[in-house]
């Protein structure tokens, strides 16, 4: 009797793709998920619209207007600089260099550590990993305040070097934790086979293990780049004008006093948001594993 209902009923149908029948429950479910995406995407759509409005339309809340792309030009030009005292184009470039530098350092330093922690059980390896994770959760100001003093004495305040250094707090835990989980998934027998083929440990690592975790390296690097890019507190306190980053530059457009430029603010926000969004969509497949520090493997 139960068989007549077929192998897929109730939750099993909810769990498995391919449901087609329309029921009141399915309509409610469709509306609910639609409602979420309206809520989730509307602010982004609104930001794009606002960024395309000219100065006359910027305070209007209408959806119909004649769009212009002039705002992006303004943000990146001298006029934007005059309004905010920040060179937005320069800030974008600084952000790219800071983040690329920070990720590069993290990869060079982190890959061997991730490999060691993934391959060997050695005294202190768990402590090392926990210490890395604790950086992820530590309140940034705990180190920023002393670093503010230290940077000033070392002369790296408001420099890219200083930012690359402090961004390790963001990029390093990601790189090490994600890559350790990739190395753990890789059968050690592949490297063992290479050793018996006559290759040294270094070459077995470089020619066998490393190429096989390339997706992991790409995912970790891009995700680390995104989070470094999105960081706000470090550049807010540890840079001034020479090494200002995008996140700080965007907020300058809100800076009160005088006339407000909502369209320019939106354009700056869009420019600052775009690189992470594009990168995130390219590594979507690896995102879950990265965001959970390797804890959830999708």
């Amino acid at each position: 009797m139960l068989r007549e209902r077929g192998p897929e009923v109730a939750l099993a149908r909810e769990l498995t793709p391919g449901q087609k029948r329309v029921t009141p429950a399915s309509v409610v479910a469709d509306l609910a998920i639609l409602a979420w995406f309206v809520f989730s995407l509307f602010p982004l759509v609104w930001m794009v619209l606002l960024a395309l409005k000219n100065d006359a339309d910027q305070t209007s809340t209408y959806f119909r207007f004649s769009p212009t792309t002039a705002n992006f030009g303004t943000v990146l030009s001298q006029r934007g600089q005059d309004l905010t005292s920040v060179d937005f184009g320069q800030a974008m470039l600084t952000s790219v260099l800071n983040c690329a530098g920070a990720v590069l350092v993290s990869l060079v330093v982190g890959i061997p550590a991730a490999y060691a922690a993934g391959r060997w059980k050695f005294k202190g390896s768990e402590d090392l990993m926990f210490q890395m994770l604790s950086f992820r959760f530590a309140p940034e100001l705990m180190v920023i305040v002393p670093l503010f003093v230290i940077y000033n004495t070392l002369g790296v305040f408001d420099t890219k070097l200083g930012m690359v250094w402090v961004l390790q707090l963001v990029t390093m835990p990601l790189v090490v934790w994600i890559l350790r989980s990739y190395f753990q998934d890789l059968s050690p027998e592949l490297e063992q086979a290479a050793l018996l083929d006559g290759y040294t440990r270094r070459r077995a690592f470089l020619t066998v293990a490393l190429p096989l975790v390339r997706p992991g390296i790409a995912a970790a690097a891009l995700l680390a780049f995104i989070f470094a890019w999105n960081n706000y507190l470090f550049p807010l306190i540890l840079t001034d004008s020479a090494a200002t980053t995008v996140t700080v530059a965007v907020t300058k457009y809100l800076g009160g006093g005088g006339q407000a430029y909502y369209n320019l603010t939106a354009a700056a926000a869009l420019l600052g948001a775009l690189p992470p969004l594009v990168l995130a969509l390219t590594i979507q497949r690896y995102l879950v594993r990265g965001l959970s520090f390797g804890a959830v493997k999708a």
Partner: peptide
């Protein structure tokens, strides 16, 4: 030289 039970062939 060793033949592994898991084969341990280089997938790439």
């Amino acid at each position: 030289a060793m033949a592994f039970e898991s084969y341990a062939l280089y997938p790439q």
